[in-house]
């Protein structure tokens, strides 16, 4: 499998990158880790005339605290997410999710920015970001703007990014200390996209859920934030009947495709099973 021809650009600043993408127009694509784009190019399902490689942009790297938020540079690799002490301590669902993405080699190169920005419904981080209520910093020719993860995804490979715009960082409100979390992913093997996956972050007090947020992966054209299910669970003791109700609400918003991972109805059910299991683990981690 051989990709088509393109011209290669390696900007060293966000400004330069955005400038290139703006001037080169629709035939240009930004490339981060490349593990989604390059296979598509080799299959000739994507044939950009220009590749703008973000690897040389130092500003896109790094993980740091910024007030009540944590900022993750878009070019941070999954491997770096897993290795980050800060993230492991403050937002452990990220490393739990990252270890379930692809395989070791891909995680060394694949970036969190690429994972959230390319709009592939099979990617794992978007649902987690919706669950965490993250915000994406996007920079385009008209400057920087912030887009809520929950507003970002519009269809398969179709996002709120304008042409020429790139995601530069991910801003995540630091979850409360002692929060419960889990990312449950059903897959056929290492390296596979989810048949269905569920992300849960919750806080509890006095045996009751004080806040709960749920994201679902690969069970619709976009990642899903299960708002209704989250609401149902908030205030509950995560008793079986309430969980069942929430799971039903979560299943109701899915519309997966039938593929070799299974028929749509099965994948919807698996979203429910993954959610149930994620809630169980999150509950244990939240200490109730």
């Amino acid at each position: 499998m051989i990709p088509g021809s393109f011209a290669y650009h390696r900007p060293s600043s966000v400004k330069e990158a955005v400038g290139l993408l703006g001037s080169l127009g629709d035939d240009a694509r930004a490339i981060a880790g490349g593990h989604s784009l390059i296979p598509m190019m080799k299959l000739r399902l994507a044939s950009p005339s220009h590749l703008v490689d973000l690897v040389g942009v130092a500003d896109l790297k790094g993980i740091r605290e910024d007030g009540k938020d944590i900022l993750i540079g878009a070019m941070t690799t999954q491997h770096e997410v897993i290795a980050s002490d800060l993230l492991t301590k403050k937002i452990p669902i990220l490393s739990e999710t990252a270890t379930l993405i692809a395989d070791p080699q891909v995680r060394y190169v694949g970036t969190i920015g690429g994972n959230v920005a390319n709009g592939d419904p099979g990617n794992d981080m978007p649902a987690v970001m919706m669950c965490l209520n993250a915000t994406y910093h996007a920079v385009g020719k008209s400057g920087e703007r912030r887009i809520a993860a929950r507003e970002f995804y519009q269809g398969a490979y179709f996002t709120a990014l304008e042409p020429g715009e790139i995601v530069t960082a991910i801003r995540i409100p630091t979850p409360a200390a002692g929060h419960g979390y889990a990312y449950e992913k059903l897959k056929r093997k290492v390296g596979d996209y989810a048949t269905a996956a569920a992300a849960v972050v919750l806080t509890a007090s006095g045996g009751k859920v004080t806040s709960c947020s749920i994201g679902l992966t690969n069970v619709a054209e976009t990642p899903l934030w299960a708002e209704e299910a989250s609401k149902i669970l908030t205030g509950s003791a995560l008793d079986a009947a309430t969980v069942k109700k929430a799971v039903a609400a979560a299943e109701a918003i899915t519309s997966p495709a039938s593929d070799s991972r299974g028929p749509a109805a099965y994948r919807t059910k698996m979203a429910g099973v993954m959610l149930t299991r994620a809630l169980g683990r999150a509950k244990a981690r939240a200490g109730f």
């Binding site: 290669y8 390696r10 490349g34 593990h35 390059i38 296979p39 590749l51 490689d53 690897v55 491997h79 070791p104 080699q105 891909v106 060394y108 190169v109």
Partner: peptide
């Protein structure tokens, strides 16, 4: 890093 050299361009 361990990388898959079939999914990477030499220029990169």
């Amino acid at each position: 890093k361990s990388v898959k050299s079939c999914t990477m361009f030499a220029v990169q």
